[in-house]
Design a protein around this nucleic acid. Structure first.
Lengths: 343, 343
DNA sequence: CTGAAAGCGCTTACAG
DNA sequence: CTGAAAGCGCTTACAG
């Protein structure tokens, strides 16, 4: 086997290009990165040779000196939850558009998984991290942010002063309540996610405020805390709907819970919306396929993902910067799971 | 600012560990990787120091010499399709479990996106790629596989001789037909994905075979080719169901299409399953939340994803190897979208 | 069992 | 406008 065929098998490096073009590797590096001053002539020559040899610079090697790996990490609770899948898709799209790869990390909100992923991402030297999952204290967050740029999605961590993108949870909760009030509902229940998450608290606060402004109250018993799963929503709804004093409307903090409540209602022989109205939150594909389809507070998932990437890249790029906090509007999408009570 | 505080700010490198332990970096490298012979004593010392300095080896640097980046790429059509989200979650889990990060790439089955992603992944020097998306010819695939290990999910590319994991599409199609035949259906339609995909062809072949074995035939007019989207299934179903000679049962090649057909049936005032039975394929969360929930051929999504990772790591690890081809069983899950015709 | 040295493929001052 | 050289943080023969 001659050296020619051997060489042709090998992946071209910057040295190959330099040799072929009769220039130094510094020059090649400059044309690759568009830095420094290179004569148009040389530039063309080098470009042509890179083309011919199908040269692809090693991100690995350049990361070792140039500090960027062009990879970002995305931590979320669960990729198989349609809401997060949707957001992940948006992050991926925007990232790739800007030349970044994105590593997905489903944490199931478990501390040990979060730890492990974070450690993995650090070793891989990702350029930054988007957190769409719960993470301990503001202090832990600060520590993490000390190691690399971080952007948080969907929750506020005031003490940490990190760039954040959230939906208008308060407004969404308020809109949900106003819709139900307008339909004549008075006995309402809330199926919430853990209230340790700020977005949950905000949704509740908006919902409650609208109710109180209308002169009614939302008792603590009317608030049910659920896990982020269909079957938990269903299980807890079964119990609630069995009572004689059952609510005429339920506001769910995500589509999974709403689907669970809908299933429980059907099992209990309750017709939706004639006997029970349901308002959901998220507006994923699930809200469209149930029967009846769900009235839901829509989150701008695509926008959320894209904005998070943009914020993160700003962090990565520049040093001192105002830590932006973006709040995106929500919108009530009225479908057929809500209506007036039919006595 | 003293040099001490400066140093303490920097991320520890192998040199820091070596200096602190009074050994060479070669020795540190060996204890990190468990290679070579190191005395128990030294090993413990070094370990302790790595611990104390919170040392995390740079994957980047080691990739430059050690050839592994511990990153794999996953190409799929669309992360926001629940089937692929489910598979992606499984790939991610198995990958991380084995120390690999996974980069997600939604291609929308578009050539230019595929090209771009592939190029990005090459530059990032991923260790291998799992393809769950369409990709041109067997030749292109071979070329890609020449550059790095590749495992294909969900379709066969016989000429390329690549490791593959598929579901038993043929068996699934057959089971769907047998179920419908047993319920007395004779006029059946198929809502298929593009038949250029082997899995589609297999599902169709199994379905048809069962029908012919029962002494009936499936005409070509009964086969509708759809895009992988709810609204396309719905649109095409609307047209089909309007005819006087409409089918009494439809077999859909994925849950998205089945949801579309279900919606069209409702709009047409047809009751499911009394007037129209629907069998779906995939068995994602969508099949559980519709009303009625869908009878579906279940694909072992978790198993598929995990097996693909295992195959890929075998490829990455060893040189000459038999190219495995794994076919995983499918299972018919009977729900309420199928039944006998009620005249 | 341990270490000196070369090399992986780049980028970046620094000189010229 | 261009190049020689050092350095990024590791791994891997090779000697000892």
């Amino acid at each position: 086997m001659s050296w020619i065929s051997e060489e042709s098998m090998m992946k071209a490096t910057i040295y190959d290009i330099a040799r072929e073009a009769g220039v130094s590797i510094a020059t090649v590096s400059k044309v690759i990165n568009g830095k420094g001053k290179i004569s148009e002539e040389r530039r063309r020559e080098v470009m042509a040779i890179m083309e011919r040899l199908q040269y692809q610079p090693s991100v690995i090697a350049s990361a070792l000196t140039g500090k960027h790996t062009y990879t970002i990490g995305l931590l979320l609770p669960d990729l198989s939850n349609p809401f997060f899948a949707e957001v992940a898709r948006a992050v991926e799209d925007r990232g790739h558009q800007l030349g970044y790869s994105v590593v997905m990390c489903s944490t199931d909100n478990k501390d040990e998984r979060i730890e492990r992923y974070l450690s993995l991402l650090k070793q891989q030297r990702v350029d930054g991290i988007i957190l769409a999952t719960g993470i301990g204290s503001a202090e832990q967050l600060k520590k993490l942010n000390h190691a690399m740029p971080v952007v948080v999605i969907g929750r506020e961590v005031p003490e940490s002063n990190l760039p954040t993108v959230v939906a208008d949870d308060w407004g969404g909760g308020k809109a949900a309540a106003e819709h139900l009030l307008a339909l004549g509902h008075r006995r309402m229940a809330v199926f919430a996610e853990r209230l340790s998450i700020t977005s949950s608290r905000e949704r509740l606060r908006g919902f409650r405020q609208a109710i109180e402004e209308a002169g009614f109250t939302l008792t603590d018993e009317a608030i049910v805390i659920c896990d982020d799963r269909i079957d938990d929503g269903r299980r807890q709804a079964s119990a609630l709907l069995r009572g004689s004093d059952r609510p005429t409307a339920v506001f769910c903090f995500n589509d999974l819970l709403a689907v669970g409540v809908l299933q429980a209602a059907k099992e209990a022989g309750l017709s939706v919306p004639a006997q029970l109205s349901i308002v959901s939150f998220d507006n994923t594909i699930l809200a469209e396929v149930t029967d009846p389809p769900l009235t839901a507070v829509a989150q701008p998932m695509t926008h959320i993902g894209a904005s998070a990437v943009d914020l993160l890249l700003e962090e990565i790029g520049s040093k001192p910067k105002i830590k932006a906090r973006i709040a995106l509007p929500t919108e009530l999408v009225i479908r057929r799971s809500t209506g007036r009570i039919v006595e």
